[in-house]
Amino acid sequence: MTADPTIAERRREGTPVLLPLLAVAVLAAFTASLLVGPAAIGVRETIDALLAGEVETTALIVREVRLPRALLGLLIGATLGLSGAALQGFLRNPLAEPGLVGVSASASFGAVLTFHTGLAGLFALALPLGGMAGACIGVVVVQALAGRDGSPLTLILAGIAVTSFAAALTSLALNLAPNPFAALEIMFWLMGSLADRSFEHVWLSAPFMVAGWLLLATLGRPLDALTLGEDAAQTLGFDLRAVRHRLVFGTALCVGAATSVAGAIGFVGLVVPHLLRPLVGHRPSALLPASALGGAVLILVADVAVRLLSPSRELKLGVLTALVGAPFFLFLVLRLRKELL
C-alpha cells in the first residue's frame, strides 16, 4: 500500500467540495425534471401534488408521470456515469464506455425482439424484461469469450464481438419488422427516451441498478492500484480476474437494466468521467462516486432539455446526449492534443 500517502494527499484536493456540489446539482436537476413538462403546472402546485393525497389530474401527472421519469433519469444517469468511470479505470483506456462490454447492444436486441414478436404489445414490462434477458445472455457470452485471465484486451475484444453481433441481429429484426409502424417504433425506441415511463419501470429496474452499483463501488481500491500497472496491482494483492468479474457483472446488472427501460443512451458514460477526472486528482476510486453523480446530473438536465426544446414532439434523449456529447468530446480531444504538444 505504498501508494496510500499520495492518495491521501490527493483526496484533500478537490473531492470534499466536489461531491456535495454535485449532489446539490443532482437535487436541482431532479427538481427541474419534476417541474418541466407539456402540462403547465406551477412550482406550488407540483409540491402540493407531491405531498397531498388528492387524486386529481395534477397530482396524477406529477406523481405518476414526472416522478418516475425523474427517478429513472437519476438512476440511469448514475448507472452510466459510474460504469463508465469503472470501465475507463479498469481498462485504463479513455475510450471505454458502458456499451463496451456488450450489454447495451444485447439488451437492445432483447428488447427489440419483444417488439418483433408482439410481446411488447401485451404488457408493459415485456419490453424491459426482454432487454434484461438479452443483457444476461450478452454478459455470459462476453465472459465466456474473454476467458479466464483478467486481461483488459480480451475483455475489449469480447465486448466488441458481442456488440457487433447483437447490433447485427437488431438490424436484422428491424429489417424483418412485421410492418412499417413496428419498424418505426423500434427505431424510436433504440434512440433512447424516458417519456411516459411509469413506476412499474422504476420498480423493475431499480433493484438491478442498485445491485450493480454495489458491485462497482467495491472496485475503488483495485482501480487505484491498477493505475500503477497490472503487475503492480497484482503484486499489491489484487486478483485481477476477480476484479474483472465484478466489473463485468456489475456493469451488466446496472447498464442492462438501464438500457432495458430507456433504450441506448450514448456518450454520458464516455464524457462524464472525462469531465470529472481532473477534478478528483485522476484517482479512479474518487472518480466513481463523482462520475455517478455527474452522470445523473447530465441525464436529468438532458431530459429536461428534451422537454423544453420541443415540448410536444419530444426529441429522443439518446439523440440529444449524442448531439451535445460528440462536439464536447471533440473539444476534449483538441485540448488533450494541445497539452501533448
Binding site: 407539456p38 402540462a39 411516459d196
Partner: peptide, 28 residues
C-alpha cells in the same frame, strides 16, 4: 402528440390507440 401529460388533463373516458405506436403511454 401521444404524451400522457397532454392527455391526462383532458380527463378522457376513452383513449383510442394503435397497436404499435405510443406503447409506454398506453401502458401508463
Amino acid at each position: 402528440h401521444g404524451l400522457a401529460e397532454e392527455i391526462l388533463p383532458m380527463k378522457p373516458d376513452l383513449v383510442l390507440a394503435g397497436a404499435f405506436t405510443t406503447r409506454p403511454t398506453v401502458f401508463l
